[in-house]
Each structure stands twice: as structure tokens, then as C-alpha cells.
Design a protein around this nucleic acid. Structure first.
Length: 412
RNA sequence: GUGGGCGUAGCACAGUUGGUAGUGCGCCAGAUUGUGGUUCUGGAUGUCGUGGGUUCGAAUCCCACCGCCCACCCCA
């Protein structure tokens, strides 16, 4: 028996109702903030992610679905979408369009990790990018947007974490300082940290081992080591958030895993998600376009929401989508009449199911599908030019004419 | 890549010290030749994850493999 491949899953009704709801909310919020949808290919040249995401990130070194195409080019299933959006932005010269380019996307991403709660090999992201501005006002608006979106999607009890990771000027200095300080204390830390102290000192800050926490607490905070422009930018973002009454927590130890982030980074976490408690991650990436070959400076900031995780933590009672009417024709002439009637009512916006066979079967089906009404069309009704309309909740049944039906439900 | 837990009907599960399978829900039919929900009666469905071993006999004991879940790691 062939089954869905590891880490992928089928989303069946009625679960898909919740997904559509979340996506509808997202589209409405994006519209309010003047974001427009972009759809990029799921397949890209491997080079794009190697350069865009960072050659020695976990994503690129061990999590990509990469294969060689028949013409020998190396292709990869997108592990994230920011690099693709920037590629499209450069390729189609969107920097020439007026104003900040605000783009959003909804779609599947692929990473070959070991699946667990809230982590899949094919997962869905709802994300957005604001391109062409370094202004902290844009940072604040983007963060406002995500808070708005999550709230309107029905998420409550989430926590917004923000940080600034500096820029090409001050971050390398901070990393070097961290590396130096770790030399004297790393020997007392967990095995992973000893390794990270050398390879990727920023990761040490993310360590969750209890015994390491006192040591980590004594390490310098990046927020204390920012250069003046970065400090000013971060302070302004925080002021703008305060103006909006948005609650946030500065987490100097918040380091995001992708190489391209600089200055503002943020994350939203939520309890009910298991170990993978991050619903959303984002940040600024002012140097990314250039590193992908752009000749013009194209600063930007973006985020992506883990749709699987958002749906998981928002999910309440999954009610199936309601059905308005079941038509139960008895006999061939009635069936032919009913089919035309069904089409007209559907054109009028009604959801209609046509049930062939015995009346008893049709009634049972109507009940199981949760239909509000059943319309019976048998010999008696055909002869009289009427229909028997039954209200399934009350059990009440009465004869109606075609005109009365149209008046009630539309669809002449 | 590394650990732990779990695989029995469509779903949720039970199955005693080894004696070749049950319960609930769901599904189908009937009680009702044109009326659902409640009730009653009847029915179908299992390579007991797969393969091998021990045994007169394995869902049960042993070994290997596969799958799912959770965790590490990392991130959405």
C-alpha cells in the first residue's frame, strides 16, 4: 500500500475548513496593509538558497531536497521563500515600481528533517516581505501586521520576542568578543556548546541546558554591543511599538538561524505547540539582495508564519461546512427535473446535493450531511407542479411552488 | 543523524500463565412499497505492521526490518 511520504500529510475535510479560515484572515489583513500576493516557483536553482540562506546553515548543509535535472543543473525544492521573492524582485526590477514593495505568499516549503510535533518535511508558510526601505517605521508596521494577523486568526496567549542582531559593522565584532569570552568558560558547558563556541558562538546563546544558563547569563548581550546606527534603529523600532501599545519582550539571546538577518529580528512563541513552540519568525535583511546579485541596494524586512503550527494552536471544534439542501427525486423523470433545478439553485448560491435512490436513503443522507432542508420530488409533486420542502431541524414539511422556492432561496 | 514510546476491523481500543480474535463508534440491510434523527433486529470487514525463529500450537515469547508518534538537534 502506498502511503504519504514521511513528514508529509493529507489535510482532509473538515480540517481544511480551519486552514481556509486562517488563509482568508491572512489575505484580508494583507489587503488592509497594502500587501499583494506573489507566487514564485516551488523549484529553484540550488545556488539561490546556498547564497541566499547561507552556505553553512543547517538548512543548506543537510535539509534541502536537491536533485540534478536532466540538463545537469542542480535544482532544489524551496526550504523557505524569502530568497525566491528577492530573486523575483531583482529579476523583474520591482525596485522600479513606486513605493515600498509589499509582497505576501502562502504555500508549501520543504525541509528534510526528522518529523515531530509541529515539524513536517512539507510544511506551509504564510509570509510577507517589505522591500526597498530601511526605515524603522517599516519594521514596526510589519510587526504590527503579524500581531494583528495572529490575533484575528484566533490565536491568544502568544508572546512577541524581539532583538537586534546588529549589522555587517558591529555583529562580527560581537561574535569575536563572544568567541574570546567563551574560550575561558566553554569547558564547563555541555558538549554541544563546546562545539558551538568555536563553530557558531551565537548558537550558544540559544542553549536550553539548565546547567549552562548561569554561564550564558554572564556573556555579553549583543544589544549592548551595537554600533550607533544599529542602536538608534532598534530604539526607534521599540518606540514605535510602544506607540501602538504592542507588548513585546526584548530577548538579547534571540538569534535566528538564517545567515541573512541583520538588525531587527523577531519571533512569536506559543505554549501548546510542544518543543517546536515558534509560530512565526522574521527579521530584516538589508544585504540579501546584493548578495544575490542585485546592483541596487534593496533593503528589506519580512517574516513567515508556520501555518501548520498556527492552525494547530488555533484549532477548535471542527464543524463540517453546512449543506443547504438535499434534493430527493423519485424516479427517472423526477431525477431529470431535479438535476436542472439543482443547477439553478446552485447558480443562486445555494449548496445543493442531489440524492438518487430510495427516499429513505435520501433522508438518511440529508441527515448525515447536516442539510438544513430536503426537497422531495416524486410523482405526486411532479403532477401537482410543486415540491415538498422539509425542514430537517423541526421536521416540518410543506408544499411549495417553484416561485416560492425561488423567493426563499434565490436562483429562479 | 541520535534516543524513547507505539503498531490488533474504517476510527478508538480490549485480548489473562501461548490454545489461530473481541467491545464501542462508524458502515450496510431490515422493522417502515414516499420520510431522517431515537430505538430494536440482523450483517459485512482483520495477511493481529512485515519477515524469520522457538513451539504440537504464537496477536501473545525471541530476532531482524518497516512504519507512525514524541524528544534531541534545528527551526516555521
Amino acid at each position: 500500500m502506498i502511503k504519504a511520504v514521511k513528514g508529509t500529510r493529507d489535510l482532509l475535510p473538515p480540517a481544511t475548513v480551519a486552514w481556509n479560515r486562517v488563509e482568508a484572515v491572512a489575505r484580508a489583513v494583507f489587503r488592509a496593509y497594502n500587501y499583494h500576493e506573489i507566487r514564485t516557483p516551488i523549484l529553484e536553482e540550488t545556488q539561490l538558497f546556498a547564497r541566499g540562506v547561507g552556505a553553512d546553515t543547517d538548512i543548506v548543509t543537510k535539509e534541502m531536497y536537491t536533485f540534478v535535472d536532466r540538463d545537469e543543473t542542480s535544482l532544489t525544492l524551496r526550504p523557505e521563500n524569502t530568497a525566491s521573492v528577492i530573486r523575483a524582485y531583482i529579476e523583474h526590477r520591482l525596485d522600479q515600481r513606486p513605493g515600498v514593495q509589499k509582497l505576501y505568499y502562502i504555500g508549501p516549503m520543504f525541509r528534510r528533517e526528522r518529523p515531530q510535533k509541529g515539524r513536517y518535511r512539507q510544511f506551509f508558510q504564510i509570509g510577507a516581505e517589505a522591500l526597498g526601505s530601511e526605515s524603522p517605521a517599516v519594521d514596526a508596521e510589519v510587526i504590527e501586521l503579524v500581531v494583528e494577523l495572529l490575533s484575528r486568526a484566533g490565536l491568544s496567549g502568544f508572546q512577541l520576542l524581539i532583538n537586534s542582531v546588529g549589522d555587517a559593522n558591529c555583529r562580527p565584532q560581537y561574535v569575536e568578543r563572544l568567541r574570546q569570552e567563551l574560550k575561558s568558560v566553554a569547558h564547563a558547558m555541555c558538549g554541544d556548546c563546546q562545539r558551538r563556541a568555536d563553530t557558531n558562538p551565537l548558537r550558544v546563546l540559544d542553549c536550553k541546558v539548565e546547567a549552562d544558563q548561569p554561564i550564558i547569563d554572564k556573556l555579553p548581550h549583543i544589544t549592548d554591543c551595537l554600533c550607533d546606527p544599529c542602536r538608534a534603529h532598534f530604539d526607534t523600532v521599540k518606540n514605535y511599538l510602544a506607540d501602538r501599545g504592542i507588548a513585546y519582550e526584548v530577548r538579547p539571546r534571540l538569534v535566528r538561524g538564517l545567515d541573512y538577518y541583520m538588525r531587527t529580528t523577531f519571533e512569536v512563541v506559543h505554549g501548546s505547540l510542544g518543543a517546536q513552540n515558534s509560530v512565526l519568525g522574521g527579521g530584516r535583511y538589508d544585504g540579501l539582495a546584493e548578495s544575490l546579485g542585485s546592483k541596487v541596494h534593496s533593503p528589506g524586512i519580512g517574516f513567515s508564519i508556520g501555518e501548520d503550527r498556527l492552525v494547530m494552536s488555533v484549532e477548535d471544534a471542527q464543524a463540517a461546512e453546512p449543506l443547504d439542501l438535499v434534493i430527493a427525486p423519485l424516479g427517472e423523470p423526477a431525477l431529470r427535473h431535479a438535476a436542472v433545478l439543482a443547477r439553478d439553485l446552485r447558480r443562486g448560491g445555494l449548496s445543493v446535493e442531489l440524492a438518487e435512490g430510495k427516499l429513505k436513503r435520501a433522508m438518511e443522507l440529508a441527515n448525515k450531511l447536516g442539510a438544513r432542508f430536503t426537497l422531495i420530488l416524486g410523482e405526486e409533486e411532479m403532477a401537482a407542479g410543486r415540491y415538498a420542502l422539509k425542514d430537517m431541524a423541526s421536521g416540518e414539511q410543506r408544499q411549495v411552488t417553484r416561485e416560492e422556492l425561488a423567493a426563499r432561496f434565490g436562483g429562479n
